[in-house]
Every structure is written in C-alpha cells, then in structure tokens.
C-alpha cells in the first residue's frame, strides 16, 4: 500500500476511481453530503434546497469534433446540477494555462465557455487564472463549480426507484468517448465521429414539469451507461434489466468500437441522461424527450426489477443474458 502509486486508471471512472474516492477522499473529507455520492450536493436552506457541484476538465485534445474543453466545462457542471433536479444558475471558473499557449486558442476556448453558458442560461460569476511553466500542465485545465436551485416539489434519489420503473436514455451512447479517442489518435472514420457534448437542463426541466413519476436521473459520463446503471442499482439495492436491442448506438460508433475492441456501453457520454420513471409515465416522458433534437433517438432501454438486486443484466439480441459489471479501469484517459 505504501508504495502504491496513482495510475491513469484511477481516473477512468470505474471501480478504481471509486476505490480512490472512498479510501482517500471520503476517508479524509467525508461528511453526510459527500457520502451520498450524488452528482451534486443538496444543501437545505430553511425550506429551500440548493445544489452544489464541481468538476475538473483535462480533456485531450482540447478541441475535438463536436466541442472543446470550454463547452465541456460548462455542460459537465450544468448537467450534474440538472440531473439532481436543480435549475442551474451560477458557475465559477478556474483555469490553469500552460505557458506558451497561443492567445488565439485560449480565446477560442473562453469564447466557447461564454457561448455555452449563455445558451444554457447560466452565468459565470467568479473566476481564477493561473499560468504554469511549460510541461507543468498540458495546454489548459479547467475547473467549474456550479450552483442551482431545486424547486421545493422536486426530490430525486435512487432510493425512490421501485421494481417496474422504466429506464429511459435520451440518445445514442458511447459517442463522446470514441470521438475523443479518434481525435487524439488521429483515427479517421467516415463519417467522422463527433462528441455528443451538450447541456441537458432544458430537456430535463421539461421532463420534470411533465411528470411527477421521475424517480432519479444520472448523466452517464466516465464509465458509460453500464457503470452508471451499476451505481444506480447498487444505491437503490434493486436490479436493472436492460434490453440490448433497445439501447441506441450510432452505427458508426458501433463500427469503430468493434474495430478497436471497445464496448460502447462503457464509453463516456457528455450529453445524455438516464431517467428512471414510473411505468405509468414512461411513454409520455419518452415522447416529450423525442421532441428535442438532442433527444430524438431516446428510448426505453430497460426496467427496474427485484429479481437480481444490485446487478445489471442485459438480455442480448439473441435472447441470452449477460451481466454488465462496472468498468474495471481501461486505458482511455483524459476524455473529459
């Protein structure tokens, strides 16, 4: 233990990341908020709740098809607030820049930060800039923290999940992870692979207004759909049954994944939300999501069950069953 070192897989979003969070961060910083392991902390102020979250972005390359580190830094934090049912309001911005960075590139990133914030309806209200010597960071690292207001009637938690609830994903999975990998390694696919990086707060807001049957939501970033569903199953103490045929995957993502030996169910998404909703409201919610351009490929991909507690099991296209585990740590670093 004493000579153990941090490996890249400690940041991959899977089991190793969780172990690191529990054994180093929770151990030293733990409190009731952190222990809930949610996307944003919900803090009670008199009768109102605010949501607070923070996220760092070290993606490489900093500009990629479908987005850049600036857009990602806004969307990532906005989405973490939105999936907790919060209306995202204010962001802080911490930037660490490597000396020698061309002004033009920085300007492009900051412009993208501004545009995305405006589109998402949030304001960046505080910031900090540091410049470090060449080699001390790679081009640019960003941290954003965000604060949002949770309407009094909204209470989203995995513990509200019940057997029979439906699982909706708002669109195709794996796009971000594979797009970053392709951009970084110079793998050219036709048509090109593009990240799904986007803010989800308007879509989520509409869904919450439509249905009181929403139990909880997650954005499946690092570790992908499979890992996020495992977290939900474990936190709810219930099983999740998934239907392979129903999971939307873009054909070009599927092809690239099969070439590279990757599984799209374990690749990061930056513009997708998983929604657990009562069976009664599921089709209505799905219909509403599909009205959004970013939700047009949404689908009901499975359901909550008490048959296999804390496990995610997928029925394959052949009708066989496959247990989906959490990501164990794979060599795909710096995707966000």
């Amino acid at each position: 233990m004493a000579d153990e070192r941090i490996l890249l897989s400690h940041g991959a979003g899977g089991l190793k990341t969780r172990k690191l969070i529990r054994e180093v961060f929770q151990k030293n910083l733990g409190n009731a908020y952190l222990q809930q392991e949610l996307d944003a902390a919900l803090i009670k102020f008199s009768t109102n709740k605010i949501a607070l979250t923070t996220d760092s972005f070290v993606v490489s390359p900093i500009i990629f098809p479908g987005g850049d580190i600036g857009k990602l830094a806004v969307c990532g934090t906005v989405n973490d607030l939105a999936v907790m049912g919060a209306k995202p309001l204010y962001l802080t911005l911490g930037i660490i820049i490597e000396e020698g960075m061309p002004f033009e590139v920085l300007e492009k990133v900051v412009c993208s930060l501004g545009n995305t914030a405006r589109e998402a309806g949030v304001q960046i209200v505080a910031g900090d800039t540091k410049v470090v010597e060449h080699g001390a960071c790679d081009k640019i690292f960003i941290n954003t923290s965000g604060i949002g207001f949770v309407p009094p009637n909204i209470d989203l938690r995995p513990s509200k999940m019940l057997p029979g609830d439906k699982i909706i994903v708002s669109g195709s999975v794996g796009n971000h992870g594979i797009a970053i990998l392709a951009a970084r390694e110079g793998l050219n696919f036709t048509p090109p692979l593009s990240s799904d990086c986007t803010y989800l707060n308007y879509l989520i807001d509409r869904v919450l207004n439509l249905s009181s049957g929403i139990k909880c939501m997650r954005d499946p970033t690092r570790g992908g759909l499979a890992t996020t569903l495992n977290e939900l199953a474990q936190q709810a103490g219930l099983g999740i049954k998934l239907y392979e045929e129903a999971v939307p995957i873009d054909p070009q993502v599927r092809r690239a994944c099969s070439m590279l030996g990757l599984d799209p169910l374990y690749l990061a998404n930056e513009g997708k939300v998983i929604i657990i909703v009562s069976a009664k409201d599921a089709s209505r919610v799905l219909e509403e999501i599909r009205k959004f351009d970013i939700g047009k490929n949404a689908n009901i991909i499975g359901e909550v069950t008490d048959a296999h507690p804390s496990k995610v099991v997928m029925e394959t296209e052949l009708g066989t069953l496959r247990v989906l585990r959490m990501l164990e740590g794979e060599p795909l670093p710096r995707i966000c």
């Binding site: 099991v313 069953l321 247990v323 164990e328």
Partner: peptide
C-alpha cells in the same frame, strides 16, 4: 468469462 458472465451467476 469475468466481464461477460451469463445468466447463471444471477440464479435465474
């Protein structure tokens, strides 16, 4: 075998 264990491990 580890990643893609089948239904047998869930005792269906």
């Amino acid at each position: 075998s580890f990643y893609y264990a089948g239904g047998d491990i869930i005792g269906r």
